[in-house]
Nucleic acid binder design. Structure first.
Lengths: 145, 145
DNA sequence: GGCATTTAGATTGCGCACAACTCAATCGCG
DNA sequence: CGCGATTGAGTTGTGCGCAATCTAAATGCC
């Protein structure tokens, strides 16, 4: 097989493996708090700005309602968020942190540092990796809308 | 929040997003053939060397039997592979390509090239990305065995 | 005002991932 | 040889991720 094709395959597989490895690096840290990695991402979005619509959260994380609806239901069942149907536009549901949802922020403050330590990349590499992955994602999404 | 922690979060999220973006770049190419990306990976492993044990495939792709057993069952139902319980050691099941499983190889020959085109990274970037991701995965797996 | 179109969210269904468990076969050690 | 420990595969249950579909609400256009 062509060298370039092989390289493409290897890179895609490396991406697939690395993503699972990072998620599994988060797992032992989040599990004691009763969170999964995607749930943690939703909370990050809400900690930055509370009371967002499901739609906005989805735009931020690139997740549709098919993924978010049940996930938010679980976060609500766990007591970390509340969902409110807006009166101004009753199609919209906004998601609000509860007290324990806000409190969780302190509990996970050390998580990113611990994951960074497990990853073992230095600052330069993290920046380069973040930037090339962001560009890759944007390029693909531009071509598969 | 600490600048470094933010960087770590951004990089993990970029990895999570890029992995899904790449998988979704494969989807329209593999879907007409009745394959998913993980199924395609299993076939890649078998095209390289046929008749491997489930265990070996799992070691190659870092997938356990909980993922592979039903996946292989679906590949078998689709007529691309056959599973045989070994007589020498009856715990072992080896997976063998069928004629149509082998034939599929030609049909997907163009796939990696098309994905590479969608990704829009040049050769140097692909190599750098593959290598840093491979190192990242190994480092994490070394620390979370 | 009335009706088609669009929009936000939920639901259904399928296929991974992964943990936890079962079961049968094999291995290893006394 | 016998038997406990280990191994390989499968099963069960949970939680994404995404396509397809549904419903209700809002919008637009006449």
């Amino acid at each position: 097989m062509d060298e370039t094709l092989r390289l493409s395959l290897q890179t895609c597989f490396a991406l697939y493996g690395a993503s699972r490895a990072v998620t599994s690096a988060y797992r032992p840290l989040l599990d004691p708090l009763g969170l999964t990695y995607p749930q943690y991402l939703v909370l990050l979005v809400l900690w930055e700005r509370d009371g967002r619509a499901v739609k906005e959260i989805g735009a931020e994380l690139r997740l549709d309602s098919g993924t978010l609806s049940p996930l938010l239901k679980r976060l609500e069942a766990a007591g970390f968020v509340e969902r409110r149907r807006e009166t101004a536009d009753e199609r919209v549901v906004t998601v609000h942190l509860t007290g324990s949802g806000r409190a969780l922020r302190e509990s996970v403050a050390c998580v990113p540092g611990q994951v960074a330590a497990k990853a073992g990349l230095d600052r330069e590499e993290l920046i380069a990796l973040r930037d090339v992955l962001t560009r890759l994602t944007r390029t693909i999404e531009g071509k598969t809308p």
